[in-house]
């Protein structure tokens, strides 16, 4: 798969990653070569093989419905870069794709 600059910029937008000019220069080729590693897998017959999602076979634990202490509000907010009145503040929320 040869990734074009445009395709990579689309991926970067989906992943919300700003890329520097230099990164834009070198990344498409590098990403293509990593994605191309999949070709080496094509020779493996995986017909009727279940995909491995978890390395060991486990069964999920369930928790009883009990209330546990939450963080103190000041601890919850302590790492927030922009705190106003006990809330985390963000600039205007937009859902449309970003135009740079």
């Amino acid at each position: 798969m040869e990734l074009s600059l445009k395709e990579m910029e689309e991926l970067a937008l989906i992943a919300r990653l700003y890329l520097t000019e230099e990164e834009k220069k070198i990344l498409p080729q590098q990403i293509s070569s990593i994605l191309d590693m999949v070709h080496s897998l094509e020779t493996v017959d995986t017909e009727d093989v279940e995909p491995t999602i978890y390395p060991i076979t486990g069964s999920g634990v369930l928790r009883e419905d009990e209330i546990l202490p939450s963080l103190a509000v000041k601890d919850a907010l302590a790492n927030g870069p922009d705190i106003v009145d006990g809330y985390f503040r963000v600039p205007r929320i937009i859902e449309e794709e970003y135009e740079s």
Partner: peptide, 30 residues
């Protein structure tokens, strides 16, 4: 285990799991 009660003070019913702090892990409520 955070309380689900409606109307609490903002960000008073949160913990590393429901705030998505990295490294916290989900454990399903039966």
């Amino acid at each position: 285990g955070c309380n689900t009660e409606f109307g609490g003070e903002p960000n008073s019913q949160v913990c590393p799991v429901c705030m998505g702090l990295p490294g916290a892990l989900p454990v399903l409520n039966r």
